[in-house]
Amino acid sequence: MNRRHDIDALRALAFALVIVYHVGMYYVAGWHWHIKSPHAAEWLQWPMRALNLWRMDLVFLISGIAFGFLRRGLSPARLIGARSVRLLVPLAFGMAVVVPYQPYVQMLAQGLIDPGFGAFLARYYSGGPWPRGAFDGSDFGVTWNHLWYLPYLWLYTVVLALLSPALDSGPGQWLRGAFTRLRGAALLVLPVLPLAVYTLALWPHFPPTHDLIHDAWLHAVYFTLFLYGHWLGVDAGLWAALRRLRWIALTLAVVAFALHVGLRTMLPGTDPLWRMAARLVADVYLWASLVAVLGWAHHALNRPWPWLAWANESVYPWYVLHQTIIIALAVLLAPLALGPWWEPVALLVATALACWLITDGLVRRVAWLRPLFGLRPRAPLPRPTPASPARPAGRSV
């Protein structure tokens, strides 16, 4: 099978969007984040919402595609074991080493602790206790903050791995075939229906928490998109259909988002019925955006880009590192008073530079660091073979 470069590129670009989004979270007014810039702007809410309504859904869909490749030739037990190492080891390391600076700065900004990272760490590693709402996850004593994606992905991987016999059964293959045979309007409409059911049944009762336990609505949505990705795989017919729909899906996404904005701004947004209507339109926007992204990626990115190999190995460390780097750099840049335009540019560029320096200069080079950031061990260099003795001139083979 030829390697699908568009899927590789889309994975890297999806996580790049996550980094851009988290830089934006420092500047968007009215949205909770760990710290906020004095230059926070309300106008950022709509472009941020336009991205927020499908960015993580895309990540989980791509993760489902990857799951399909990973489970080939592996028993459920071996698959779960391998993925546990790749997901839970970086999670534990990230929670212990990378993330703690984030709640420290968050509490410092609220005046809840005195300066001194060492003293904070001693209390943090003992589990607190903390004032209620001191930082995101303070009720649990510690937090995984932006690393919540890793336990969610691990959970979905375990569930789908255990369901492998059902997926491979006759009914399971029929269901996958029903999905991969979708074309035209059916491909734009039918996958939205489960998302709409979750909105009606779960969304009013389970707001997003990212705490793994009380996140029923997001679990339903993300697991469904993870399953869609698994079914999607590299099915040539379905990818061709996505490519054909790219303009229609893009148009539908623009119209649906405009309607969503209208429902949230022009109508009585506090009314539960209007809020539900806006959320249902957001489901249409979500899926139309994913179809457009997948279709355009297959159209434009399916080629051996020279940066792909580097990007694919860099994605995981950058993901683990980026939010702590953003917060640390925001603290460093604030006294420089660069203003509402130059500071965000400097923060984004410096974040990318720091992620690159740490990943390429340290993580990828140090053998024991690689698994802590989700990287496989480096392949051993081939041993040089002894040179063959020269044959006498004129001798036949």
Rank of each mutant, 00 (worst) to 15 (best):
H5S: 02
A9R: 06
A9W: 04
A16L: 13
Y26W: 07
W31Y: 11
H32C: 06
H34L: 04
H34V: 03
W43I: 15
M48R: 05
L51E: 04
R55D: 03
I62V: 15
S63D: 03
G64M: 15
F67E: 05
G68F: 11
S75A: 11
A77Q: 15
R78M: 08
R83L: 14
R86G: 04
R86L: 07
L88Q: 03
L88W: 00
L91V: 10
A92F: 14
F93T: 05
M95P: 00
P103V: 12
Q106G: 09
A109Q: 13
G111C: 06
G116M: 14
L121N: 09
S126I: 03
W130T: 00
W130H: 03
D136A: 12
S138G: 09
F140V: 00
G141N: 13
T143S: 15
W144R: 01
W144T: 00
N145Y: 02
H146K: 03
W154F: 15
Y156P: 04
T157I: 10
V158H: 09
L167G: 00
L167S: 09
D168R: 13
Q173I: 02
A178I: 01
G184N: 02
L188V: 06
L190N: 06
P194G: 09
L195E: 09
A196E: 13
L200Y: 13
A201W: 05
A201T: 09
L202F: 09
W203L: 07
P207V: 07
H210S: 03
H210M: 09
I213G: 03
Y222K: 11
V234I: 10
R246M: 08
I248E: 06
A249V: 05
L252K: 01
V254P: 04
V254L: 15
D271Y: 10
A282H: 02
W287Q: 00
A288Y: 02
V291T: 00
W296A: 11
W296V: 12
W307A: 09
Y316H: 05
Y316L: 08
V320Q: 00
I325L: 08
L336R: 13
E343G: 12
A346L: 11
L347V: 04
A350Q: 08
T359R: 02
G361W: 12
L362I: 12
R365F: 14
W368L: 08
F373P: 01
F373E: 04
L375G: 05
R376N: 07
P386A: 12
V397L: 14
